[in-house]
């Protein structure tokens, strides 16, 4: 099939960027979306143009590297899937496809469709962990965890950190991402000692970045490739409120 692609091109962070239109012939339905871009890039290189830069790595939907907005929807229209798992059979001959990078002040564009998501790392660095020294852990079965609790924690732990939640939030909020990590660790007995400290530190770090606020629009949940529930946001809000109201707020985000 033939496609018309409108692709955001931007040389570097300073370049204002703009759309360029490409015609692509012979797209087959079994191709993944990224393979379609591979084919475009081979054509561009041969024609002496710069290929379209985009982040990608595992191409199995788990590393969270890939992601851009296709026709207005983060990761494209297929529910519960990343771009790399989207195949061209979901498009029709003659379709026009608009491809844009994640757009958020907190995710500056580095080139074309590549954005800087290091804000996510900074948030997790602030408190997205359970402090346990290597080799100091108790015997694994010494704390029984009900199967349901482990599964519930896993629902949130599955987050791949792709940033689609931010990209599709009208406010560019990172609540689903942060909520998922806080919920994951807060649902497990191991996560209890640092629960309030973690919520404070991570929320504080999130607020330092240029993300917006949550207005419960719930677009994040709808586009999340791992279909993470916004109940994680509720858990984050609760932990944050409890931490504010309890004494642990004096500890601030700093460890020890």
């Amino acid at each position: 099939m033939k496609l018309t692609l409108h692709v955001w091109r931007q040389k570097d962070a300073r370049d204002p960027g703009g759309f360029k239109t490409y015609q692509l012939e012979d797209v087959t339905t079994h191709m993944s979306f990224l393979e379609m871009l591979d084919v475009l890039n081979q054509d561009l290189i041969t024609a002496g143009e710069d290929p379209v830069a985009f982040d990608h790595d595992c191409r199995e939907g788990v590393c969270g590297a890939c992601g851009f907005v296709i026709n207005g929807v983060a990761h494209g229209d297929q529910k519960g899937s990343t771009v790399c798992q989207l195949h061209m059979r979901h498009f029709a001959d003659g379709d026009e496809v608009t491809i844009e990078p994640w757009r958020a002040k907190a995710f500056p564009v580095l080139r074309d469709l590549v954005v800087d998501r290091s804000a996510f790392d900074r948030i997790l660095t602030a408190g997205g962990f359970i402090s346990v020294r290597t080799g100091s852990a108790p015997e694994a079965n010494s704390i029984p965890i009900p199967s349901e609790a482990a599964e519930h924690a896993m629902d949130f732990a599955e987050c791949i950190g792709c940033g689609a939640c931010v990209a599709s939030c009208p406010n560019s909020a990172a609540m689903l991402f942060v909520g998922a990590k806080i919920a994951h660790l807060g649902l497990l007995p191991q996560g209890q000692p640092e629960r309030e400290r973690r919520a404070l530190a991570m929320v504080e770090a999130m607020e330092r970045e240029a993300f917006g606020s949550c207005t419960n629009y719930r677009a994040c949940e709808a586009v999340c490739p791992k279909e993470i529930s916004i109940s994680g946001i509720a858990r984050m809000n609760k932990d944050f409120r409890r931490a504010l109201l309890s004494g642990s707020n004096r500890a601030s985000g700093k460890r020890r």
């Binding site: 962990f129 359970i130 346990v132 290597t134 080799g135 100091s136 852990a137 108790p138 015997e139 694994a140 079965n141 704390i143 029984p144 965890i145 009900p146 199967s147 609790a149 482990a150 599964e151 924690a153 896993m154 732990a157 994951h184 660790l185 497990l188 191991q190 996560g191």
Partner: peptide, 21 residues
């Protein structure tokens, strides 16, 4: 020791209904 360490870090391994791994 790896399993002990990972469990302590909060890795949600699959569990039996009794709560053991």
């Amino acid at each position: 020791a790896i399993i002990d360490q990972c469990v302590a870090q909060g890795i949600p391994f699959a569990r039996e209904y009794g709560g053991t791994l």
